[in-house]
Amino acid sequence: MRRVALAAALAVTAACSDVSAPPNHTPAYAYDLSGEIFHWPVGRLPVRYFADTRGPMRAYVQRALGLWEHQFLYGEFRATLVPDSAQADVIVTWTDSVPPDVPPDNGPPVQTCGGATLLTFDGSGTALATPIHTSLSVLASSATPGQLAACMQRTVVHEIGHTLGLPHSPDSIVAIMNATPLLVTPNDNDRRTVEYLYHVTPTIAPPPR
């Protein structure tokens, strides 16, 4: 019986050689902002996001944050939605009109919306002075409400990518961070780049709380 027990225990342990090498983590595109590096430090997690309370913005931002959080393996980025913009690190609003809350059209992308993310520096130029501000706008077009909703969803993901510190990716590399985003979610190019960015020492400090 003793032999049986030992054999069983060894059967489990004998195959336990530890030869797991780390995978390649090369970024897919440049992650600096004109030579400067910004990302949220561990001490500022979870990053506090305020989303415009009108229309589907809160749902869009929640979805985008979930997608970006899912790109990380090692606790590099976490975010939370806060109800008060005065408590936020990032404020996401509509520029003017509020689009209808309808399901997105999953057909070919139609560029019927725009987005902008603004980082405001303090006098030293090495720290943000105010919360990051992102705004989403409806462009004049004959697109359907569903096409507009699809554009808003992917543009919010793209703009939230900027709030994480990502610049635009070159058009030669397909990514959600292309200047005109056509993807619905971040892809492997975005994942590898943002993962790497969050392990580089930043040169820009986050805004004060």
Binding site: P22, H25, L73, Y74, E195, Y196, H199, V200
Partner: peptide, 9 residues
């Protein structure tokens, strides 16, 4: 897990 992205951790 052990990995290395810029530095090891």
């Amino acid at each position: 897990a052990r990995d290395s992205i810029v530095t090891a951790f």
